[in-house]
């Protein structure tokens, strides 16, 4: 992080004491979960977007809500915000019932939608002023601090912003009233790596202040650095809720080898942990779970000239859970569906 950003971070740290709407003075700040969801279901005609979702998120944690596009993440979030009405089930946010108490919930949360749209004719500062006035409890100096920290240009019209700059305005409006709960739907869109780092620091500061973050993403790498726990949703069903370190342990990872000469196509057959091996002459792509030692031992029989490690993608993590014998109950139907999927197979290109 640059000195400037670090200085700004320190500056914001000093301002993290609770606000009038903050946790410390909130009547129900302790003893209740930040989010409690019971049997939440959303049906659109004959399509079930979210089905019987149960979830509890404690105060002061960063919860990653993971799932591929169309899995039901945004639908769940929009039900929490009372933008969509559930077909059945219920939810409480900060101890308040979604629906009857949504006005108060909105007062105490910050939100950025997945596909952020702002008023194109307004400048960034006009946009933030509008939302700040709607809220009424915004410390404008804190808004400027956030803008400085995110290096947001507030002077341009929204129509002239890049995706990243527009996203920064969205993030500022979500953070600016120091909400007790941040609901962030794909918040990293368009942010460069430095800004992502700053953003993650901001999330950690929120957690350190006892506030809560509900962070939705389709990318594991986006949440694994900051989240304490993750929930994975797939086809509207919550597949699993797990601590991040446990999730990583179960994840399938990939290694790409380049050898100095063509290798046998069955060289990884029978190697413990190998899920899939794609071998094409001097190149081999290995998907494995568990310890990497056995894979490396099998590979190093030949001369390796290059080795590249890739992050596990989400679908593979889903598959890992489907295959796992100790998967939670909701996995049962999916496990049956994927039982015929190849296990330690061999694929030759």
């Amino acid at each position: 992080m640059s000195d400037e950003v670090e200085a700004a971070a320190t500056s914001v740290d000093r301002d993290r004491e609770p606000t009038p709407s903050g946790p410390a003075e909130s009547p129900d700040a302790s003893g209740t979960a930040a989010i409690e969801i019971v049997g939440l279901t959303k049906q659109f005609k004959d399509f079930t977007a979210v089905e019987e979702l149960d979830l509890e998120i404690g105060r002061g944690e960063i919860f990653g809500f993971l799932g591929p596009n169309g899995a039901g993440k945004s639908t769940t979030i929009r039900m929490l915000l009372d933008q969509l009405r559930p077909s059945s089930g219920s939810a409480r946010v900060l101890g308040l019932a979604v629906g009857p108490d949504s006005l108060e919930i909105h007062r105490r949360i910050g939100y950025i939608p997945g596909d952020l749209a702002l008023y194109p004719k307004l400048t960034g500062i006009q946009t933030l002023r509008y939302f700040a006035r709607l809220r009424g409890n915004v410390d404008w100096s804190y808004v400027l601090e956030l803008a400085e920290r995110l290096e947001a240009d507030l002077g341009k019209k929204v129509a002239d912003y890049s995706t990243g700059n527009r996203q920064k305005i969205g993030l500022i409006q979500a953070f600016m009233h120091r909400p007790e709960l941040l609901i962030l739907d794909e918040p990293n869109a368009g942010l460069d790596p430095l800004m992502q780092q700053t953003f993650h620091e901001m999330l950690r500061e929120v957690r350190a202040a006892g506030r809560t973050v509900f962070l939705s993403s389709h990318t594991l790498s986006e949440v694994e650095r900051v989240a304490d726990r993750v929930g994975i949703i797939r086809r509207g069903k919550l597949v699993v809720v797990e601590r991040v370190d446990e999730l990583k342990r179960k994840a399938i990872r990939r290694l790409d080898f380049e050898f100095d000469q063509p290798v046998p196509i069955d060289m990884f057959e029978g190697v413990a942990g190998v899920r899939d091996a794609e071998i094409d002459g001097v190149h081999a792509g290995i998907a494995y779970e568990g310890s990497v030692n056995d894979v490396l031992q099998a590979a190093l029989v030949h001369e390796v000239v290059n080795l590249h490690s890739r992050d596990a993608d989400l679908e593979e993590i889903f598959l890992a859970f489907y295959r796992s014998d100790d998967s939670p109950a909701p996995l049962s139907p999916a496990r049956t569906a994927t039982a015929s999927a190849p296990r330690a197979g061999r694929h030759v290109r």
């Binding site: 929009r78 915000l81 933008q83 006005l103 108060e104 909105h106 007062r107 949360i109 939100y111 950025i112 939608p113 596909d115 952020l116 749209a117 702002l118 008023y119 939302f131 709607l134 809220r135 009424g136 969205g170 409006q173």
Partner: peptide, 14 residues
């Protein structure tokens, strides 16, 4: 239609 309702309706206003 423009998508601005997503942020607007999350503000403390009915």
């Amino acid at each position: 239609r423009e998508g601005t309702m997503a942020v607007l309706s999350a503000q403390p206003v009915t």
